[in-house]
Each structure stands twice: as structure tokens, then as C-alpha cells.
């Protein structure tokens, strides 16, 4: 049990997918102007990363490894991720059309989110078992969502601040992102 808690803390905070591994930066800067969009994107990404981590682990363990096809892992995982996104999109559309109308716009953006592929490659390189891979995917995406919401909250406040025109908008966002990354460095060594 302790190993699972350490794995969760490590993936969510210490090795945060955005601020420590520098993955998913496009959505980090692009979708964090409002908290509601950040939460929507964060939850959609959490769902897709968790489902695709499970699928990627299964494909790796039962297809790529027995047939010695590891050199195809990148292209295979991209296909699995695209399928996971399509599955999510079709399911949400079928289960509840109003929810799809409200939230469906975030889903296509996840296909090209490098954080999803990065997590899949990391979990097979670390030779995790199925439950560890699922937990790693879930924890990484929780860390992603946490940072997205924190950044959106900061940017919503910054939008009301009187800053020099030169720094308004993205420049200010980059400075805040770097300070946030420095703050997250405080978690280093927590799970060592």
C-alpha cells in the first residue's frame, strides 16, 4: 500500500508532468485563461490518460513484448491514444448529447497532447505491472489537472492586475509558470 501512495505522490507532485517533465505545455498555456475551461480540459485529460495508460500497458505486455516489437511503441501508442480519444468522444456523445455539446470541444485537443504519449512511454519503460501503470497514469493526470487549475486561478487574478503593457498576457503567464515550476521543485526528494 505504501508503495502505491509513494507512486501516486511521485507521479502527481515530485515528477509533475507539466512542471518537472515539461510535457503538455501547449494546453498549459492555451487553456488556462479561465478556471472552468481548465477544469474541463483537466478532467477530460485525466479520463483519457488513465484509460489510454491501461490500454497502452495491455498492448505493450500482450502484443509488443511477446513479438519483440518495441521499436513500434511510439506509433502504436499514438494509435491507441487516438482510439481512446475517439472512444471517449463517442461515449460522451452517446451517453449524453447535452454534455457532448458543452464539453466535446476539448476532446480533439487531447489527441495531440504530448503528456498522454509521454505518460504511456514512461510507464512501459519503468516495467510497471497493470495496477501500477493505471495508478501512474491516473496520478500523472491528477498532477496535470492540479497545475492547470492553479495556473488558471493565477491567470484570472493577473488579468485584473495593473501590469506594464509589455508583460500583459503570455509573457506574464510564462513568468508565473516558471515561478510555479520553482515552487514544485520543493517536492524534490520527497519520495526518495
Amino acid at each position: 500500500m505504501e508503495a502505491y501512495v509513494l507512486l501516486f505522490v511521485s507521479a502527481a507532485l515530485v515528477n509533475n508532468v507539466i512542471l518537472a517533465r515539461f510535457l503538455g505545455l501547449c494546453s498549459f498555456m492555451g487553456v488556462t485563461t479561465r478556471i472552468d475551461t481548465a477544469v474541463g480540459m483537466g478532467l477530460a485529460t485525466t479520463f483519457v490518460i488513465t484509460v489510454s495508460s491501461m490500454a497502452d500497458w495491455a498492448v505493450g505486455a500482450y502484443l509488443l513484448e511477446p513479438y519483440n516489437l518495441w521499436y513500434l511503441r511510439t506509433v502504436t501508442f499514438i494509435m491507441v491514444i487516438a482510439a481512446a480519444v475517439q472512444f471517449t468522444e463517442l461515449t460522451v456523445k452517446k451517453v449524453s448529447p447535452p454534455l457532448f455539446q458543452m464539453l466535446g470541444i476539448y476532446l480533439p485537443l487531447i489527441t495531440t497532447n504530448c503528456a498522454v504519449l509521454g505518460v504511456a512511454i514512461l510507464l512501459v519503460e519503468h516495467k510497471m505491472n497493470f495496477i501500477e501503470a493505471t495508478l501512474f497514469g491516473f496520478a500523472s493526470s491528477v498532477g496535470y489537472s492540479l497545475v492547470m487549475v492553479m495556473m488558471a486561478g493565477l491567470r484570472e487574478r493577473l488579468a485584473l492586475a495593473d501590469v506594464p503593457r509589455l508583460f500583459a498576457g503570455p509573457p506574464n503567464g510564462f513568468i508565473v509558470a516558471s515561478l510555479l515550476a520553482l515552487a514544485f521543485m520543493g517536492f524534490s526528494g520527497m519520495t526518495a
Binding site: I35, V39, V92, L99, L103
Partner: peptide
């Protein structure tokens, strides 16, 4: 905004 947040929770958090 609350509706968007609740819709996100219903669509993704419950199945997850």
C-alpha cells in the same frame, strides 16, 4: 460556470 464544472464532473469524474 457552475454548470460547466458540474457537467465536467458528471461526464468524466463519475466513470473514472
Amino acid at each position: 460556470e457552475n454548470a460547466v464544472l458540474r457537467a465536467s464532473l458528471i461526464a468524466y469524474a463519475i466513470p473514472l
